[in-house]
């Protein structure tokens, strides 16, 4: 088991029902990039928090509605998204950077200095 994998935490108590946004998680030598689809979530309705080793992504959908609109067909049936991840130890949660463009959240979680790859010289004695 690769211990650098972001494991999804399932035991977290959820308060309100929410949609599970699809994500991509890409890891390179210096950190992890997480992409999440959060269509309809404006910047001010996006809530990201890191608590101990738990990363929570939450967002509320705000759509422009017309007066007296009645829903006739809904595939997106809930007004919010939520997804929780457990970060592994070598990730530096204090240095997470986030960007929200066209409904896609891009999170960059760098690895702590000591966890960055180092080349170990092999000396021939």
């Amino acid at each position: 088991m690769n211990d650098t994998t972001l494991a999804r935490q399932a035991s977290r108590a959820t308060t309100e029902p929410a949609l599970l946004p699809p994500v991509d998680v890409i890891e390179d030598a210096n950190g992890i990039t997480l992409l999440a689809d959060l269509p309809g979530v404006p910047k001010d309705r996006l809530n990201l928090h890191v608590e101990a080793d738990t990363l929570t992504i939450e967002g509320e959908i705000a759509l422009p509605t017309a007066d007296g609109m009645e829903a006739t067909h809904a595939e997106v049936g809930l007004p919010r998204y939520r997804r929780v991840f457990t970060l592994s130890k070598e990730l530096d949660a204090a240095k997470v950077s986030a960007e929200l463009t066209h409904g896609v959240l891009r999170l960059r979680i760098p690895k702590a200095e000591h966890a960055q790859p180092r080349r170990i010289e092999v000396r021939v004695g």
């Binding site: 959060l38 759509l63 509605t65 017309a66 007296g68 009645e70 006739t72 066209h102 409904g103």
Partner: peptide, 16 residues
């Protein structure tokens, strides 16, 4: 998602 009003049909395509 599709909604309707007496004056219009409102379509929302979630295409992030």
């Amino acid at each position: 998602n599709v909604g309707s009003t007496p004056r219009s049909i409102e379509l929302y395509a979630f295409a992030p």
